[in-house]
Simulated scan of single mutants.
Amino acid sequence: FNLQSVIAQDDIMPAEKKGEFLNSGDSDLARALDLEICSQSDVFVPAIPGMFYGNVAGKRIASGLTQILVPAPVVGGSAQASDFVSTYITKKSHFAYSCYC
């Protein structure tokens, strides 16, 4: 995720404020933006397993956005996207299912 390219491409703030924001060093704000963007995107592909992945998956499940694909080696030369769906979705193993579904 490249925060600068998202800000530049999507124009979420006025141009004169971009430099101030990007140079602020506010890692909490960057993490909050990462969480929001990953939670609302069409498809989420987690970079690594962990708390961030679990939190994004929970927010996505709660809002009905169940397109979560987990990177894995392709066996046999070809694969379908459905072969890479997160077990949070296929097995309904995320705790969000007990709260929201």
Rank of each mutant, 00 (worst) to 15 (best):
F1K: 00
F1N: 05
F1M: 05
L3C: 02
Q4Y: 01
Q4M: 00
S5F: 13
S5Y: 10
V6L: 09
I7G: 01
I7A: 06
Q9R: 05
Q9I: 11
D11N: 15
I12Q: 03
I12H: 04
M13S: 01
M13Q: 10
M13K: 12
P14V: 09
P14D: 15
P14R: 09
P14E: 11
A15Q: 06
E16K: 04
K17T: 06
K17P: 02
K18T: 08
K18D: 00
G19S: 06
G19A: 14
G19L: 02
E20T: 01
F21D: 10
F21H: 12
N23T: 13
N23H: 09
N23Y: 09
S24Y: 07
S24H: 07
S24F: 04
D26S: 00
S27I: 13
S27G: 02
S27R: 14
S27N: 11
D28L: 02
D28F: 09
L29P: 10
A30T: 14
R31P: 01
L33A: 04
L33D: 08
L33T: 04
L33Q: 03
L33G: 15
D34F: 09
D34E: 15
L35F: 05
E36M: 14
I37V: 14
I37N: 05
C38T: 01
C38D: 12
S39Y: 04
S39A: 15
Q40R: 14
Q40T: 13
F44V: 00
F44K: 00
F44Y: 07
V45H: 06
P46K: 06
P46A: 10
I48D: 08
P49C: 07
P49G: 15
G50W: 08
F52V: 03
F52D: 02
F52K: 04
F52P: 00
F52N: 01
F52Y: 10
Y53D: 14
G54A: 12
G54F: 08
G54Y: 09
N55S: 12
V56Y: 12
V56T: 07
V56R: 09
V56F: 05
A57P: 02
A57F: 03
G58P: 13
K59Y: 01
K59H: 10
K59L: 07
I61W: 05
I61S: 05
A62D: 11
A62K: 15
S63L: 06
S63Y: 05
S63V: 07
S63N: 08
G64I: 10
G64H: 09
L65Q: 03
L65E: 04
L65A: 08
I68T: 00
I68R: 08
V70L: 08
V70G: 01
V70S: 00
A72Y: 13
P73M: 08
P73T: 14
P73S: 11
V75T: 12
G76T: 12
G77M: 11
S78I: 12
S78A: 11
S78D: 05
Q80T: 14
Q80D: 08
A81D: 03
A81C: 05
S82G: 06
S82D: 09
D83T: 08
D83I: 11
F84K: 09
F84N: 11
V85Q: 07
V85H: 04
T87V: 14
T90E: 13
K91N: 11
K91R: 15
K92V: 00
K92G: 14
S93E: 15
S93H: 10
H94Y: 03
H94R: 01
S98L: 03
S98A: 09
S98M: 03
Y100C: 13
Y100S: 06
Y100A: 11
C101T: 08
